[in-house]
Amino acid sequence: MKRSAVLPSSIRAAIVDLDGTMVDTLGDFLVVLQHTLSDMGCHPIELARVDREFVSLTVGKGTEDLLRRSLAHAWGLPDDDAEVIAQVPLAWQHYQGHYTRLNGLHSEVYPGVDSGLQRLRDKGLPLACLTNKPTAFAEQLLERKGLRHHFAHVFGGDAFEKKKPDPLPLIRTCEALGHAPGDTVMIGDSSNDAQAAAAAGCPVVLVTYGYNHGHPIEDVPALAHIDRIDQID
């Protein structure tokens, strides 16, 4: 059955998540992490632990969190192990170089994203991309996928003092768009987006195909759950 989401007439702007909402970036994450972990001295059996399933359950809370949890998983250590935490800055240096080179080469825009964003803009809604991915990587990916022109603003996980699911990034993004949180819809794929939106006072629409840490997204309260962004009216 085709889903649809009719936005309240009060909505004046939209904030859109990136990974798992607009672009399937699991391939990018997996390839970059494999290069990074190899640079960190991981052996083949350790590299094999960080597979696509692990990455799909881990992404969404920022690069530092992803690197820490990936190192720990590869080495068979707890996430909060002191050795793992101490190695994250070095891993970040390797990761940054690989991601800049490979960003977007192993990812695909989800069906209905480009047309859905254009539809929102045609209705007069200014758009902002808000992601926990570093801003430079987000800008680069949107450019490479032909989506950057849709957005008045792009804010990454390093743009503000806190990341989603904290509401601060949404509140600041609403300020940049010039509209109150209650008049700004958040479009995302995970409980991170929903929690941040609820705390900020934004209504939220969730896509059904993204990365929600292995939990059914339909269990997360939202204005609507949709299969494509162009199902928003």
Rank of each mutant, 00 (worst) to 15 (best):
T208F: 01
P181I: 09
Q96F: 13
Q140S: 15
H98Q: 09
P8T: 12
W75R: 14
H179V: 06
P216S: 06
Y110Q: 14
D193T: 08
I45F: 10
A136W: 12
F160S: 02
G112F: 08
C202G: 00
V109I: 07
Q195V: 04
L170N: 02
A222D: 03
R69N: 10
L67V: 12
V50P: 05
R69W: 00
G116A: 12
G188F: 03
E46F: 01
V204N: 04
D230N: 09
L223P: 03
R52M: 14
G60S: 08
L105V: 06
S4V: 06
A222C: 07
S9M: 06
G156P: 08
D230Q: 04
R121H: 08
S10E: 14
E108K: 07
V84C: 11
A5H: 08
N132W: 03
R148G: 06
A200L: 01
D81F: 05
V59H: 02
L125A: 00
T58F: 06
A86F: 03
V32T: 14
H150D: 08
F137Y: 14
S190P: 13
G156L: 11
I187T: 08
E218C: 03
K145T: 13
D233E: 15
V59D: 01
G27P: 06
G146H: 01
S190R: 12
L105F: 06
D166I: 01
E139A: 10
E64Q: 11
G124D: 04
V88D: 01
S191M: 13
G104N: 07
E143N: 12
D122Q: 13
D219R: 15
L47E: 02
A74Q: 00
N212E: 10
E46R: 00
H73P: 00
V59I: 14
L130I: 07
V88C: 05
T173S: 13
L33K: 14
I217G: 02
V50N: 07
Y110H: 13
I232R: 05
H94P: 01
G182T: 05
T135M: 09
